[in-house]
């Protein structure tokens, strides 16, 4: 039998908006997925050379090592304020922050609230994994009632620690918010939806429509004490219930954009 000729077809390549460096993230962590989605969106929009990112304090503190674009590293929770300063003096650039739940919903609650309230024309990628990753698994403002963390060893007791904050629900109430949605990274279908939302958020900024945020339900297998697979299942079975997926704020002007794009 004659040897079959191999035909090489490139079906996947690393995004040009990512560097060659391997990430420091734990196996099974979804940070890698969200980085890739953002990078692909930036590639597809052709805006890498006009985009400035802001890294948080948290596991993604070294995000600037992985994204191939101008980047700054903010103080804990202050990324939206820093992004505000950068964007106001660089109004023609695309400025995005990448923040975890401790950074955005706890120590940075004031900064995110007011950035949204001002309708600051920035994009926020909000990683909600219901735990503090970098410091080793303490309670986050998004930790679920009953969830065990190293600072709630018997599970989050709502009598003591109160209730989780639902940031999409809160921020969508503000008039300055143009696009506020929650997606999840627990399976392929949801990852594809997440990417579309990230694209929409960057488009919102490009068109100067106001504050945009995509919350991504994410996994932290290491600090949840689970395998990668179990962690994804845990998102689906527990987090999605507490943090319903959906579009919380889509300003009417974006709806028009969407329709135009569909034509």
């Amino acid at each position: 039998m004659a040897e079959k000729e191999w035909i090489e077809t490139l079906i996947y390549t690393k995004s040009g908006s990512l560097t060659e460096l391997g990430t420091h993230y734990c196996p099974g962590c979804t940070h890698g997925i969200s980085h890739r989605l953002i990078a692909e969106v930036i590639d597809e929009m052709g805006i890498r050379e006009d985009t400035i990112g802001i890294a948080p304090v948290g596991c993604a503190v070294f995000a600037y090592d992985y994204f191939n674009m101008d980047f700054a590293e903010a103080a804990h929770g202050r990324a939206p304020a820093m992004a505000t300063g950068l964007k106001r003096v660089n109004p023609d650039k695309i400025v995005f922050t990448y923040q975890g739940d401790g950074d955005l919903a706890s120590i940075g609650a004031a900064e995110i609230m007011h950035a949204a309230g001002r309708g600051e024309n920035i994009t926020v990628i909000f990683i909600n994994n219901a735990i503090y990753g970098m410091t080793g698994g303490q309670m986050a403002p998004t930790t679920l009632p009953g969830q065990r963390t190293t600072s709630t060893p018997l599970g989050r007791d709502i009598e003591v620690h109160g209730f989780p904050l639902r940031m999409c629900e809160i921020l969508s109430q503000l008039d300055g918010s143009a696009y506020v949605v929650r997606r999840s990274l627990h399976n392929v279908a949801n990852i594809r939806r997440a990417k579309k939302a990230i694209r929409q958020a960057f488009e919102v900024q490009r068109q100067g429509l106001g504050f945009s945020m995509v919350e991504l339900l994410s996994s932290c297998p290491t600090n949840w004490g689970m395998s990668a697979d179990e962690a994804l299942t845990w998102i689906e079975e527990h987090m999605v219930e507490a943090y319903p997926l959906g579009d919380y704020k889509v300003s009417p002007s974006i709806a028009v954009t969407k329709k135009d794009e569909g034509r």
Binding site: A81, A83, G85
Partner: peptide, 24 residues
């Protein structure tokens, strides 16, 4: 030019930080 009343001095100085990073 840019003037912005921040929500706090914490935010104000971080806005300064952001704009300083832009070289202005």
């Amino acid at each position: 030019r840019v003037f912005l009343q921040a929500e706090s001095e914490v935010a104000a100085i971080n806005m300064v930080y952001g704009a300083a990073c832009a070289g202005v």
